[in-house]
Every structure is written in C-alpha cells, then in structure tokens.
C-alpha cells in the first residue's frame, strides 16, 4: 500500500500541533538562517579517522545512564566495544528497534565493517554519546557542545558522523 501523503513528515508543524493540543506554548526551534561553516576533508575517506557522535541516549553496560530532563553530560564508548553491551533509553522515541539492533541509531558494527573493507580509514578511539532531547539550547551550547568539540579535536578526528534519532 502506498503512502497517502509521501512527503517527509514535518515534525516542527507536528510538534506545534501536539503541544497546542496539550495547552503548551509552541517550542522555539533553533532557526539558523546564517550558512554553516564549511570544512573539507583533506584526504580520502579511506585514509581518514572518523569520529562518531550519537544522540540517542546510548550508554554502555556499567556506565551511568542518562536522565531524561536536559541531561547535558556525555558518555564515551570505545569503538571496539562489544555491541551486546550497548544500551538505549530515550523519552521521545520508541527504542524497541535500537535495543534489538543498536546499529539503527549507533552504527558501530556498520562502521567497523566499512573500515574492514577499506571505505573508511579508521574510527576515532571513542564514540561520544549524549541524550539529545535537550530543550534548552542555551545549556546545550554552553555546557555540552564545548566538551564534544574538544574531545573530537583531542582524538584527531578528520571527519565526524553524527546520528540523531
């Protein structure tokens, strides 16, 4: 059966409608009209060190889990981790698929296979994870983003893949 409306879902409009139905004021989404910075990969991807940052509330067995209320901490997961130790909790999406196969939001086996076949040079030693459901853009910018930027630079990543949910 085909979709009755094949266009991508407009989650900004949908959130506005959902919140209005609950009597909440509309959420003010980040609107960046200024163009982003643009950096280029100075070497082939097959020779590059790739960083992974995932925002799906992912942690490793033994780590402290994320809270669900504007948690601006992050976790570091070795990129040679046993995938069976990956956990996912989140308040805003159904984690059932991600718990069965973490690669849907934390593509660690996928990236390791791309390294093995030579498409990607290597992975940065640690993947960085956080709970992306942060409503306060101010706290995100002042507390979490500087840490993620610093760790990325410290690990010498030539490029970074980011995965939201």
């Amino acid at each position: 059966m085909a979709e009755s409306d094949p266009r991508p879902i407009d989650y900004i409009a949908l959130t506005r409608e959902t919140y209005a139905g609950l009597g909440y004021p509309p959420y003010r989404w980040a609107l960046n009209e200024d163009p982003p910075s643009w950096a280029t990969l100075g070497k082939p991807l097959s020779e590059a060190r790739l960083g992974l940052i995932a925002s799906g509330g992912i942690y490793r067995h033994g780590q402290v889990a994320f809270t669900h209320r504007d948690d601006v901490t992050h976790r570091e997961i070795p990129t040679d981790v046993d995938t069976a130790e990956i956990r996912v909790t989140h308040f805003a999406f159904d984690p059932a698929a991600a718990r069965r196969d973490p690669n849907v939001v934390f593509p660690i086996d996928t990236l390791r296979s791309l390294v093995a076949e030579g498409t990607v040079g290597e992975l940065a030693p640690m993947a960085l994870t956080f709970m992306g459901g942060i409503y306060s853009q101010r706290r995100l910018a002042s507390e979490l983003i500087p840490v993620l930027v610093d760790r990325t630079l410290e690990m010498g990543a030539d490029a970074v893949l980011l995965v939201p949910v």
Partner: peptide
C-alpha cells in the same frame, strides 16, 4: 529535539 541538538553540535565542530 535530537535532530536539533545534532545540527547545533555539527555546526560547532565544522566551525573548528
């Protein structure tokens, strides 16, 4: 929200 956070992190890293 996750997508917004990732977008903002992405811009900040690229800026470096």
């Amino acid at each position: 929200m996750c997508h917004q956070s990732v977008g903002l992190v992405s811009r900040a890293i690229e800026r470096k």
